[in-house]
Design a binder for these strands. Sequence first.
RNA 1: CGCGGGGUAGAGCAGUUGGCAGCUCGCCAGGCCCAUAACCUGGAGGUCGUGGGUUCAAGUCCCACCCCCGCAACCA
Length: 541
Amino acid sequence: MTNKFYVTTPIYYVNDKPHIGSAYTTVVADALARANRLRGVPTMFLTGTDENSQKNVEAAQKAGAAGKILSEADFRSYLDEMATIWQRTWKELGISFDDFIRTTEERHRKAVDRFWRAVSKSGDIYKDSYESLYCVGCEEFKTPFAIKDSHCPLHPNQELQLVKEENYFFRASAYKDELLKLYHDHPEFIQPVSRMNEVRSYVKDAFEDFSISREAKHLSCGIPVPDDDSQRIYVWFDALINYLSAVGYGTDDKLFKKWWPATLHLVGKDIIKFHCALWPTMIMSAAKSDPLLQNEDGSPMLPERIFAHGFFTIDGQKISKSLDNAVDPLDLAKEYPFDAVRYFLLREIPFGEDGDFSKTRLAERYNTDLGNTLGNLVNRAISMSRKYFNNQVPNTNVQNTMTALPETSWAGSEGMDTLWQSVDQYIEATRLDLALETIWTGENCSLISANKYVEETKPFKLAKDNLEQAGIVLYTLLEACRQYAWMIEPIMPNIAEEIIRQLGQDPKKERKQGIKVLKTWGGLKPGSELPEPKILFPRNS
RNA sequence: CGCGGGGUAGAGCAGUUGGCAGCUCGCCAGGCCCAUAACCUGGAGGUCGUGGGUUCAAGUCCCACCCCCGCAACCA
């Protein structure tokens, strides 16, 4: 692994505001970014908007007054407005993106220009007259192979359009073998495995050259082809390059060298072909003529990993506007602390699989996992300490708290180390669901174990006849809570900080000490003040 | 021969490299009283879709079959 973490989400079309699906991708990226930052890894987290699409034009048209012709300025202000909405939504949801790229920005245009010229110099762009069936739904030309009953299988009720025009083509097919070799040599390149298989068979059977431009007269947006103003770059060819332009390709070589290649592209399962097949071949080609895209040995600098996550249904049904079941993440944030929604999204769905979103289930998880198990543990530990130890963390010898009291199942500070190891391992594997599961119900020092430890030792009784032991147990619980807070920080940043504050510590100061210190047993100072606890997750009926 | 997902306790779901079938909710019984009617223990409840096969051992691998869900547009 490299010593930096550059993670991306897809750039989103701005034909609508964010819904729970795009929020999911973005929350996953955010949690991974936070986890890496916490671990001291230099992190770049990129998200943004895809603005050069005909779909956006249509949306802008609809948003405007009926019958009014959309002017260039109208479109631009629509894009600005939507981009603002997306950015604001992410901020309200606590998304810690480091950069937000818009494909209408100058820096992107420059990157695309440089990239196109590089591919062209490599001899992989040619002009050809093209007559083919075009699916407006997919925004792509369909090969005969991909057509069923003279319709696109993805959009069977939409007529395919017969388009005949001069276009530029990208010689992707020239890289087919190199691509297959990449899959073979780097099985981790595409995850989960099922997607790798899907992509591989697509490349083997149906991978052809891509048409990468459209005649400008058909489009009211798009980046002009370098040196040919009559053509506009096809939206996908332009969009993928955002991952380069955001880190300085074409504008800032030094910055680019710092961040590229991307560590991880997070994508939805619907766009894997573009990311897993087209994108690497684009780079392979450009790299031949652009040293900036080459590794030291001259090989192309490809992204390290692409992870395709699944889709949500809402109460078992596909997200659809006609059913009006699209869930607005901002609405959810009104009903629950958004940390709770983040927890739900990341805990509920095995990463990479499809999953279901239901408010009932969210309420259940909120009350049980969060309120009963975590919130209650923090609350009872602090309350008892305050009650029996003068509103302080028991002033006990930390050494004595590293092992459990006899005849209990608590695994001690070693168990806590083991828990950290599992958590780190799962985060590394992008399995946040498993990381959370382990923290909650695992063998070693999970939240459940901690609650059990209370039952086994009964500190509320010990306080009466063995105050020293009571102190040991309570210190153990408080210190465990401190560590739990840091374990869940990437997933629930606000709650984590709140727990730290309730333990009488300053989250910012603690964070500065670095992960190694945070993980070390005994970070909580014996005898320090404990403020009155507040309910972390008020029960919701 | 379209594509994809799935069939595991009443409900919702986990089950990495095959090794005594788990989690949450609900239900029953008990304990506890520090805490958010929260916490802990025990119990009932599963022929892991069906039929074959490989293996000392299969929910997990192989083969066949059955059933369910999504695939106009909006849409990750």
